[in-house]
Nucleic acid binder design. Sequence first.
DNA 1: ATGTGATTTGTACTATCGTACAAAAGATCA
DNA 2: TGATCTTTTGTACGATAGTACAAATCACAT
Lengths: 236, 236
Amino acid sequence: MVRKPTSKETARKPNMREAILAAAEELFATNGFNAVSVRDIAQAAGANPGSVTYHFKTKDGLLLEIYRRHCGPMNLRRSELLAAAKRVRDLQDRLEAIVRAYVVPAFTSGSDLAGGGARFTRLRAVMSAEGNEVARRIIAQTFDDTSHAFIDAIHESLPHIPRTEIVWRSHFLLGALYYSLVTPERVARLSRGEADGSDAASAIEQLVQATVAAFQAPALDQTAPARRRAVASSKT
Amino acid sequence: MVRKPTSKETARKPNMREAILAAAEELFATNGFNAVSVRDIAQAAGANPGSVTYHFKTKDGLLLEIYRRHCGPMNLRRSELLAAAKRVRDLQDRLEAIVRAYVVPAFTSGSDLAGGGARFTRLRAVMSAEGNEVARRIIAQTFDDTSHAFIDAIHESLPHIPRTEIVWRSHFLLGALYYSLVTPERVARLSRGEADGSDAASAIEQLVQATVAAFQAPALDQTAPARRRAVASSKT
DNA sequence: ATGTGATTTGTACTATCGTACAAAAGATCA
DNA sequence: TGATCTTTTGTACGATAGTACAAATCACAT
C-alpha cells in the first residue's frame, strides 16, 4: 500500500504551515522582525494572512515556533560533534575539532531543511541584535547549556587559560560567526572579489583557523597585570 | 560681555535637536530601527513628534544625521591612531597597536559625546544586522577606505599571510567587536558573573589579545591545500 | 455520497505608524 | 516695541500594522 499520509502528519507538497515557517524564517533573517509584516510573510508563502493567525496565533508565536523547530536538532548535532571531538587525543587537534563542532552546524543544515542551519543562525544573529524578547528568552534557556559544554571542553584542552578568558574568546567566536552570516558580501567587497563571503566552506575554514589561534593566545592573567604594553602616542 | 550664543550656533542647554539625536541613537542602538517610532524618540527626548519632522524631515533623515555626526570624528581618530601605530618598530608590537587603533575608538568616545563611540558602534551593529538601506550606503562609502587602510597596515606587518585571509580575520574582528557591544550581558552570564561584558577596558584587552593571535595564525594557503587535518568521526 | 473536522479565505476592526501643516510661542534685531 | 525668522506645538490624514472571526472550502472516514 502507498500509505498516503494523514493531514495530521506531514503532508507532501502543499503544506502551508511549513511554507509559512520557511518564508518567515527567510524574511526575518534578512530584514529583522519588525520590518516584516504578517502580510509579507503570507504573500511570500503563497498563503492568506489569516492562515498565519490560524497556525501560529500571533507573530510572536510564529517566531517561537521557528526557534522550537531548529533548537533541538541543532543542539543535538552540536552535542554529537562535541562528544566526538572530545575523544580526539592530541590536544591541538582536539581544540580544532571542538571549534569545528561548534561552527559547522551553524553554517550548514542542522535540521530536516537543507541550509536551514545557516539561515537559522543568521536569524538568531539578527534577533539578538534587535534585542528581541521572545528570542532572548529561548536562547538563554536553550543554548546556554550547550555553550557551557563547549566552554568547558575548550577549557579542558587549554587548562592554563582562565575560564573567564575562554568565555570571552568563545563570545568573540559567536560574534564573528554571526557577522559572517549577516554580511558576507562585505568580505567580497574588501577583498576586491578575491574571497567569497557566501561560500560556507571557506568561511568555516577561515573561522576555525583564526579562532583556534585566538583560543591558544596567552592569557591576560589578571593576577599578574604587570605586563602593560605601551601604545605609541595614543593621545592626540 | 557674556556673549549669549546665537541659535544658529550651539545653544547651551535646551537644545532639542541634540536631545532628539541622542535619544534616537540610544533607542535605535538597543531596539533596532523599525521597532522605534518617531513618537518614542520624541518622548524620550522630551520633544514634540512634529519637532522631529521639523529638524530631520523624515525618520531616515534622522538616522542619516546620526551617521553624519559620528562618521567623521570616528574615522579621524582611527586614522590618527593608525598613523601612530604604523610608526611602531617591532612587528609584533606594531600589529597589536594597529588592532588597538581599530578597536579603541569603537568602544569609547570618538566624538564630542562621552561614550558616543560605543553607542554609535552598537548602532552600526544593529543596523547592519537589520540590513538597513540608509546605513548600508553610508557605511560602504565612509568606512571602506578606513577598513582598507587597516587591512593594508596589518598586511604589511604580516607579509606572509595572503591579503584575503587578512580580510577574513578583520571581518571576524568586526563581528566580535559588534557582538561584544550588542550582548555584553551574555559574557557575564556564561562566566557566572566572573567577567563583566559591559566593562569596556577588559573587553578591549580581551579582544585585542585574541585578535592579534588570530591574525598571527598560519595561513590556510589555498596554493598548497595539502594539509587537511582529519576530524574524528564527523559523520553520524 | 455525505457528514465532520481541519484548513483557507475574505473582510473588518482598532491601534499605531510616518508625515504634513497651520497656529502658537520664542528669539533676534532695527 | 514691532517685524521677522526660527522653533515648538497640536492636530489630522492616509497607510499599514496585528489580529479576530464568520463564511467558504477542502480532506477524508464512513
